[in-house]
């Protein structure tokens, strides 16, 4: 009886290791699929007030997030997480080919000057993009971002309902994966490294 139990435990262990190995091999081996329905070229204004073309991101692996700086919860939380991730990559010497980009859908309040001050606190390497309402609308549509002005807060500022994914974009500007804002940083790093 004792032998039978020991053998069963051994078989279960071997199977568990085999499954784990196969899983890790799959996630490491399979390239991330390309999302062909999102992305494309866009023109905006960067945090220095200079015209910005998405072509400037070619050759970089990009983490893109859409938000607005007067959002008190999700947006600063996500940018803080992006800053943590970027600093981790700096420590391992992998940050030089990575670019974090924040696009506002509140250009009225998020001017270039304001974005520069806001983003520099998270990390000075981050790019902030604003533009005309038409430019914002176009780029949001390219990434299937939903944002709706849903009224005013008690201070008279516009409140937005918005989707809140982080986009992983490869060196050729193709969207490879979307993450919810509470995704594990390790998962994002693991995926990102397959594109470096």
């Amino acid at each position: 009886m004792k032998k039978l139990i020991l053998m069963t435990v051994a078989v279960v262990c071997v199977l568990a290791v085999a499954v784990l190995w196969q899983t890790s091999r799959d996630s490491a081996g399979k390239p991330l699929p390309v999302n062909t329905r999102m992305g494309g070229q866009f023109e905006m204004t960067d945090q220095d007030g200079q015209p910005f073309s998405s072509e400037a991101l070619q050759g970089k692996v990009v983490l893109l997030f859409f938000g607005f700086t007067h959002c008190p919860d999700i947006c600063p939380a996500t940018m803080a997480r992006m800053a943590q991730l970027y600093k981790d990559l700096e420590q391992t010497g992998e940050a030089s080919d990575v670019q974090v980009v924040f696009i506002t859908f509140d250009p009225e309040r998020d001017t270039a000057e304001y974005l520069k001050k806001y983003l520099a606190w998270f990390h000075p390497d981050f790019i902030g993009l604003t533009g005309t309402p038409e430019q914002v609308k176009k780029v949001a549509a390219q990434y299937s971002v939903v944002y709706l002005a849903v009224g005013e807060d008690s201070e008279g500022g516009t409140e937005f309902a918005h989707s809140d994914f982080v986009y992983l974009i490869d060196r050729e500007g193709k969207v490879r994966k979307l993450y919810p804002v509470d995704a594990e940083l390790e998962e994002i790093k693991r995926d990102l490294r397959t594109l470096l």
Binding site: P72, V146, V150, D153, S154, E159, A161, H162, S163, D164
Partner: peptide
């Protein structure tokens, strides 16, 4: 703070999340 409110973050049917007082 000059003012303060209690808010919640409610998921919407269209996939967005909306802040509500």
């Amino acid at each position: 703070a000059g003012a303060g409110e209690m808010h919640t973050m409610a998921p919407q049917e269209d996939g967005t999340r909306r802040m509500r007082r």
